[in-house]
Amino acid sequence: MKGLAPIRPTLVAAAAVLCTGLMIATPWFVPEGNLRLMIEIFAVFAFAQGWNFLAGYVGIMSFGQQLFIGLGAYSLFLASNWTGLNPFLILPLSFVFSAAFAAAITPFVFRLRDAYLAISIWVIAEVVRLFISQRDALGSVSGLPLVATREMARSVVATSTFYYAGALAIVSVFGLYYVSVSRLGLALAAVRDNEGTASAIGINVWWTRFFGFVLGSGFTGLAGAVYYMSVFHVEPGGAFDPNWMVVMLFIVIIGGVGTIEGPIIGTAVYFLFRAWFAGTGNLYLMLLGAAAVLVMLISPSGIWGIVKSRLGIDLLGARRASGLDAPTKKARTAS
């Protein structure tokens, strides 16, 4: 892999272009029913990468990211229903609204640390869920339909939603890659690893964490809007369901936190498990739990962590090579 390091930027850019091309072509080859499954897979993958970004790249552990799934979905549904505007045109609004909400709660949640911070966001998600459940104007417990899509042709809706979901998946891989190798990515990694030292080298720690949290949460909101747009209906019990958090944790932990490749594997494992065992009721949940525990015991850095250390493959890691001639080969054979 060492030999590929100098041309990696070119390879990644080529892969991004290729994936985008495939994504654009897909609706011509894939039947509508399968498109719907792919939308779901891409949206759930984006949820997982959003959490992975916070936990593995920014260093913020939140157990309440379902808050932003719900906020993204509700902001889109309400804005479209109230104004009658095409939801596909105003979709970016759900990013803006979720990011603004994240920004508004930071002064409170950033006072808390670790487990307290993690749980505080979950508590806020519950409060928002109850708030919506009790207001008829917001659809109360039975939720809201997406009115505007009713008059559109179903195939147009499916294709448009698919493109948004595909864009989420591409950003979840390549967007995360480009952020992680950027100047911002270096600042985030420094803050994640050691806040005191990060301050001591001139990084404004508070604003760096703020920016990371707002960016990651806004992205989760956007993915939430896409997910619920594909099912045409949102209700508070589903959109703010803590089970979303369980799914994100499962995918990221089993795949490998702080890596881009890990959640790709995790998402594949999750949907395969669901396809094979969803009919088995509680056994399915126990299998998910058992698989997560097993992977954690074998490798705390997930399945991709094993691949990386055993095979020395690092496709999309954020490593910046020094270019200094280190006796790497000698050190490897010696150890």
Binding site: L186, A187, A189, D193, N194, T197, I201, I203
Partner: peptide, 20 residues
């Protein structure tokens, strides 16, 4: 107090990057 997951080079690179 290093940045533990970053390499020695990245630790020093971060210092060179954000201090000016």
């Amino acid at each position: 107090q290093p940045f533990g997951l970053l390499t020695a080079y990245e630790n020093v690179l971060a210092a060179a990057t954000f201090s000016r």
